[in-house]
């Protein structure tokens, strides 16, 4: 069955210069292996192709559990000089949660 990440996880976006950080936190720890298996850095890069132009690195935090994605060149120049509406990219947590996976 196809589900949205929104159905099983939550996220918060953060920014540093032109770099975007996205956490991905499953509501229940049982879904963490599913996220690890399918929400790879490559899959997120593909999903966010129109938003992130640089590299995406994934960090695993099994203790929480959660995943953290660090996306380079994601904020069209960064918070201070970007012409975009959401210069911080704060709303992009919900762009990640639009991604679909197989449950």
């Amino acid at each position: 069955m196809t589900i949205k990440l929104y159905d099983i996880a939550h996220s918060r976006a953060g920014d540093k210069g032109n770099t975007l950080t996205l956490s991905l936190i499953p509501y229940t720890a049982e879904d963490y292996p599913l996220l690890c298996a399918q929400v790879t850095a490559e899959a997120v890069k593909q999903h966010l192709a129109e938003i992130v132009s640089g590299e995406i690195t994934r960090y695993e935090l099994p203790n929480l559990p959660a995943l953290q994605f660090v996306c380079q060149q994601a904020l069209t120049g960064g918070v201070t000089t970007s012409l975009t509406m959401d210069t911080h990219g704060k709303s992009l947590s919900y762009a990640l949660l639009e991604m679909c996976i197989q449950s």
């Binding site: 918060r12 953060g14 540093k16 770099t19 950080t21 936190i25 509501y27 929480l64 959660a66 953290q68």
Partner: peptide, 16 residues
């Protein structure tokens, strides 16, 4: 736990 997890990872580049 959910609010704390979101904040722990907020604006963190390399968690290690």
């Amino acid at each position: 736990l959910a609010t704390a997890k979101e904040q722990l990872l907020y604006e963190v580049m390399d968690p290690s």
